[in-house]
Design a binder for these strands. Sequence first.
DNA 1: TCTCCTTAATGAACACTGTTCAATTATTAT
DNA 2: ATAATAATTGAACAGTGTTCATTAAGGAGA
Lengths: 203, 203
Amino acid sequence: MARRNDHTREELRELALEAAEHIVQTQGVEALSTRKVATAIGYSVGSLYSVFSNLDDLCWQLNTRTLTELLEELERQQAEEPKACLHAYGLIYLQFAQRHPERWRLLFEHRSPEGKQMPDALETQIATLFSYIDRCLGTLFPAWSANELALRARTVWSGVHGIAQLQLGDKLFLQEPDGATQMLALLIDGLLKGWQQEGECHA
Amino acid sequence: MARRNDHTREELRELALEAAEHIVQTQGVEALSTRKVATAIGYSVGSLYSVFSNLDDLCWQLNTRTLTELLEELERQQAEEPKACLHAYGLIYLQFAQRHPERWRLLFEHRSPEGKQMPDALETQIATLFSYIDRCLGTLFPAWSANELALRARTVWSGVHGIAQLQLGDKLFLQEPDGATQMLALLIDGLLKGWQQEGECHA
DNA sequence: TCTCCTTAATGAACACTGTTCAATTATTAT
DNA sequence: ATAATAATTGAACAGTGTTCATTAAGGAGA
């Protein structure tokens, strides 16, 4: 059996990514293997390696898909007020992590062997993510420089990200089920209020 | 060769953990394997399994050691002023993550197969970590309830933790080399100022 | 229709992994 | 010296990522 041409290269890639996504979601990150993906799509391991350079490559492509999905959800939200917008972003982020815990883990915990860099596509997407927060902060604090803005946007996002990660790792030990959501509100409100009062009104 | 008694059970455990720590630090988390640890301490794989129930167990014990080391560093710092204390804690945390990136990764990214819980010892240590921040916040905001305090202590820690993780994952994309340190200051100062002005002075 | 060439597709092979457990052997007790 | 005990081993099993010689299907030219 050769040159079956049941699927084009691109179709095969899509099939494989879909199968991999399903395995990760249902059996966890560590259950992902080339043989499982191959059998899931009805091809052999060798065929996989004609589409992806290796498992690492497949993981990054999967992560790109995941981040695309997250970015789409973030774009879909349309609060005008920048403060409300930031809250909405944070909530979407937290809920996305909760809904897709394994894919989220792969996105932030996968590292290439031998310190290979993450692909440019993903780097661009993360930059896009930052730009959303940048925009919100920019309208709230028009006086800040681009550098200042970048630094603070990353600070906000780190906070949200930290909450998401600790929550997923069961390292928060909170009684309330919506503890993470409450923390999110405390974080964003606290930072915005604190940064607003910078210089003025210092107790 | 049996009953060599070169080392007691406890000594063997210690040897193995030390070797594992070294492997993780020098070759990365994914390079850790039972055979490598075994050969490093001059025993066979089988002997490892008489001291640890499996690799997962060894990882958790390694993580307990790492967290002990971090807690010791946190205790060593002795700023009286609660605000300064929080800053110091954050800096120690960030620097610890930078100095021991692989052990830190293992600590926060390791998950047991089949959703087994993390051991009680580690849970207690994390609670201790929270208690430090609790104490600082408690003296700054004596009016808060224990619940309120817990929620905010975790919020602060999530922020610091998020900065540490994104920095290690090269997902911050900042020009300045000390960007993470600046973010840390912005985070803590912002949150404290914002939480201080809560209710009063609301713009 | 019958070759010939190209190439999609395979799966055995290699070196690794965690884990188990019968076999071996050094120490202790009798 | 002998028997009992338990520390230690390493082969075996099922899995992993990756490579690559082999196979066979499709198209082109006669």
